[in-house]
């Protein structure tokens, strides 16, 4: 009995890992197989010959790089918007007392509860009225609207963890409110800002529905819709190109995550206030 428990636990865990990892592994494997090997039965687990031709074709013969650039601009700008607005909003919600503060915070969260499908048509009409339809900026605005509420709440809880006395001390020491924010609040908030930025970036990078509805020009399409329309048609799916594209789409996220994760954890637990 004593021996059985860890064994069962291990079996369970590893099957879970396998279940999650398999599509990823298969994606990479498929992207490296030559066309001839793709549909062989039984399938080959390890490609008999490894080829990078799909990657080469993707980069040289398709507008993949343009989509990629669009996605980078889209996700980065959205993240900047959301972090800037979210930080200032959270600061206001935590530090200032005014009428309807809590209601405002709840209302913001409420918009987050609505399914995006409900908002997409009004948003589209608004973009048309504003003359922004079919621009990258319309997507940036749309992504900001759905990422901001959650970001605001996330940052608010981080902000609440920063003792007010720290800011008061800076004010007494001669800093202006902005100065106190820059010198004292911001460094304390950095882990929160980074996790919020990460969350927003991933959300915006992977978003499909808004991009599909708000943008139908190939010139401003991000990766998600661009790759789909390019490689998937009613008659044919370019599997090897699709898998190569998927691998390259995942790379930036993996890099960003790997780079920031150590920073995320190192920020926590540092405290100068006792009690």
């Amino acid at each position: 009995m004593k021996l059985l428990r860890p064994v069962l636990l291990n079996v369970f865990t590893w099957s879970l890992v396998f279940l999650i990892a398999f599509p990823l592994v298969w994606m990479i494997v498929t992207s490296l197989k030559p066309q001839s090997e793709l549909f062989r039965i039984p399938p080959t687990w390890i490609p008999e010959s490894v080829t990078f031709e799909h990657y080469w074709r993707l980069l040289s013969e398709t507008p993949f790089l343009r989509y990629f650039r669009n996605s980078v601009v889209l996700a980065t700008t959205t993240t900047l918007f959301v972090v800037a607005l979210g930080t200032l909003g959270a600061y206001s919600l935590v530090r200032f007392t005014y009428r309807g503060r809590e209601t405002l915070a709840l209302l913001v969260l409420f918009t987050y509860l609505l399914p995006s499908v409900v908002l997409i048509i009004p948003l589209y009409l608004m973009m048309v009225t504003l003359g922004l339809s079919n621009t990258l900026f319309s997507l940036i605005l749309a992504h900001t609207t759905f990422a901001l509420p959650y970001a605001l709440w996330l940052l608010r809880s981080f902000m609440e963890g920063i003792p007010e006395d720290l800011e008061n001390a800076a004010l007494v020491d001669g800093a202006t409110r902005i100065g106190a924010f820059r010198d004292v609040i911001f460094p304390q908030l950095l882990p929160g800002i980074i996790s919020t930025a990460l969350f927003t970036f991933i959300l915006s990078w992977n978003e499909y529905l808004y991009a599909l509805v708000l943008v139908n020009s190939d010139a401003v399409a991000p990766l998600t819709t661009g790759v789909m329309s390019m490689l998937i048609s009613a008659f044919n799916i370019e599997w090897s190109l699709l898998m190569a594209a998927s691998v390259m789409m995942s790379l930036p996220l993996i890099v960003v995550f790997a780079f920031l994760q150590s920073y995320l954890t190192s920020g926590f637990g540092a405290g100068g206030v006792k009690g």
Binding site: P163, D173, G174, T176, P187, A270, G272, K274
Partner: peptide, 20 residues
């Protein structure tokens, strides 16, 4: 007058040292 212009200094119960 803003706190910084009053020519005062304050010690807080929590010390409020800047952790970074």
């Amino acid at each position: 007058l803003a706190p910084g212009k009053r020519d005062i200094a304050m010690v807080f119960q929590s010390y409020a040292l800047y952790p970074h």
